[in-house]
């Protein structure tokens, strides 16, 4: 089956005063409907840049220097702006972290959604308002609030308005960039529940971008772990939890606090991500990796296939079963200051 979204060997560079920053370096993944895919990583790993590249929203000093992005088999990364408008909102919509602050304060929220609908579809105002009412029900907002202004909503409710808007044209792909990061935990839980339900009912797929492993675990089926612009590991959520094969994935799982089970010892990964201005030979994670060997500094690790749909960029991915028990020990990770 043809993937809904296919990102293939994409590179994105930022031109800066100090040189080229390789923010996204040879990133590939594909999202097959009705799957939800998570792009996970820490600040500066390039996950949001990937989303911007898909959406034609890259800053002026950034460009896609290699690779291709296809949507339903059609290339979308090299088409003209006007042509991409066909996809925008109708096929691919966005929920971003701070989108709730992007609502126009002087229009009612209903009018703003109607405007978005009418910009892409021939539809009368009355019909469009009917659609908005339906959307409000979906996201759990009282329909009479259509006539309210953004300042009359709390943060969580504004984020629901944004979700309603992202669904307005029944897109097949929703890109959600940290959709609940700014919200309180109870509101986050309510919104995640809506997102999961809506996605089931509407047969849209979600590309979720987040640093929060626990949030993506509840929404997505597949996870792509990024580090320093590269994909370190790509697999199903279950595999990631049970059999992570990249030392970075192992570290992330051990560093993540959880309320479940007995309180384990948290580890912290020593060191920092590398400077992306420099060309680095070998593995980008090696300086922080407790299992590094001389080869890691010389040869860039290949994508090692561990099983169907499970790839890890590590020379020792096949020995992961031996490394994993060590990765749960605090001593393994002790090193320089994080």
């Amino acid at each position: 089956m043809e993937p809904l979204l296919d990102v293939r060997n994409v590179k994105v560079n930022y031109r800066t005063e100090r040189g080229l920053v390789h923010a996204v370096d040879d990133v590939s993944f594909s999202l097959r409907s009705p799957q939800n895919l998570a792009l996970v990583g820490e600040s500066g790993c390039g996950k949001t840049t990937v989303a911007k590249a898909i959406l034609h929203l890259l800053a002026d000093n950034a460009s896609i220097s290699a690779g291709e992005i296809t949507f339903r088999g059609q290339q979308i990364h090299n088409i003209e702006e006007g042509e991409f408008d066909r996809y925008r909102w109708c096929e691919i919509s966005v929920i971003s972290q701070s989108a709730m602050n992007a609502l126009n304060p002087v229009y009612t929220v209903g009018d703003q959604i109607v405007e978005a609908i009418q910009a892409h579809e021939r539809m009368g105002r009355r019909e469009a308002l009917g659609r908005v009412r339906e959307l409000f029900q979906w996201v759990g907002l009282p329909p009479e609030r259509i006539r309210a202004y953004p300042h009359e909503f709390s943060g969580g409710m504004k984020q629901r308005v944004i979700i309603a808007m992202s669904l307005a044209l029944r897109p097949s792909l929703i890109i959600a960039d940290e959709p609940t990061t700014a919200l309180d935990v109870i509101m986050q839980d309510q919104i995640l529940e809506r997102i999961v339900n809506i996605q089931r009912q509407s047969s849209s797929s979600i590309l979720m971008i987040s640093h929060d492993i626990s949030v993506v675990t509840e929404v997505c089926q597949h996870i792509v772990v990024m580090y320093a612009g590269k994909v370190m590991e790509s697999c199903s959520i279950e595999k990631f939890y049970q059999r992570p094969c990249h030392p970075y994935s192992m570290g992330l799982l051990m560093a993540f606090p959880t309320l479940e089970g007995e309180a384990k010892r948290l580890i912290s990964i020593p060191g920092f991500p590398p400077n992306l201005l420099e060309e680095i030979d070998g593995c980008l994670f090696r300086d922080r990796c407790p299992f590094q060997r001389p080869v890691c500094g010389e040869i860039a690790p290949p994508d090692v296939e561990i099983g169907p749909g499970h790839v890890a960029k590590c020379h020792f991915a096949h020995q992961a079963d031996e490394l994993r028990p060590l990765s749960t020990k605090e001593e393994t990770w002790e090193g320089s200051v994080a």
């Binding site: 935990v185 109870i186 986050q188 839980d189 995640l192 929060d212 492993i213 626990s214 949030v215 675990t217 509840e218 959520i237 279950e238 939890y241 799982l253 993540f256 959880t258 309320l259 479940e260």
Partner: peptide, 12 residues
């Protein structure tokens, strides 16, 4: 309510 709203990083 607050405790049960905390997501758990375990798919199972």
């Amino acid at each position: 309510a607050l405790i049960s709203a905390v997501p758990i990083p375990n798919p199972y």
